[in-house]
Design a binder for these strands. Sequence first.
DNA 1: TATGCTTCCTGTAGCCACTACAGGTTCAAG
DNA 2: CTTGAACCTGTAGTGGCTACAGGAAGCATA
Lengths: 129, 129
Amino acid sequence: MFAIGEASRQSGVSIETIRYYEREGIVPPPERSANGRRIYSAEAIGRLKFLKNCRNLGFSLSDAKALLELSVGEYSDCDAVFRMGDRQLASTRKKIAELRRLEAALTELTANCSEGNTDCPMLDALRGG
Amino acid sequence: MFAIGEASRQSGVSIETIRYYEREGIVPPPERSANGRRIYSAEAIGRLKFLKNCRNLGFSLSDAKALLELSVGEYSDCDAVFRMGDRQLASTRKKIAELRRLEAALTELTANCSEGNTDCPMLDALRGG
DNA sequence: TATGCTTCCTGTAGCCACTACAGGTTCAAG
DNA sequence: CTTGAACCTGTAGTGGCTACAGGAAGCATA
């Protein structure tokens, strides 16, 4: 059994965030020691790691919570997990496409800049539309 | 001179957001009609359009404000504008790189899923680390 | 025993950039 | 005169933390 600081170190989730997850009902409230401090089991730390892994993959907290529940559930519903992963993948690809659009636009706009122009082509573009 | 609804339509910035920009000091407070309603000049609408264009390129509001000030300034400081565009480009590329990492990871994780597995490989991966 | 450092506690406010009301006034059309 | 649209102010909510303030308790050293 571990104090919150140790749970944080082991899971990679910050202390404040662990307490936040508890407040939000993402993880169950842990036991408390006689003096009122939180104590975490290895299993509880495993849940924090799981959430961290989900967040690292870009899943929202509510998706991460859902995945955690699927993970803890009786039988592993691989299909449901796949669907969530697939949706996450689609949304990631959508974001990439959008960012590439921005990248292209910014590349073009900055290209003609910075040549000691009297007139700034980028500002001109921003004024347009 | 135009009412806020018309300013919104012309600029593409929502009414609530226009008021928000005013509250935050991003744009100067417009004149008011006798009955207390906001009235916008073509120039003021131009500023809103400018901000919209900046936001569409991914600039933060404070960057957008800075660009607007550079745009309104006496002489056009093309160098400063270029530096901001370049920083925005760099941060956009960083985000793309990160999202591509997520895309690759999600692709791999979902690949072995959804085959009626007893054990879910994606959940296994999420439990690891 | 006294001290100082670290860890922990609760509770609240802030970040970004909006968005969504609630509850009211004013205006324009029929 | 009524109806509905457009406007007003002010406040609260979103996501996912992060950063305090202000205090209690434990641990190591002197």
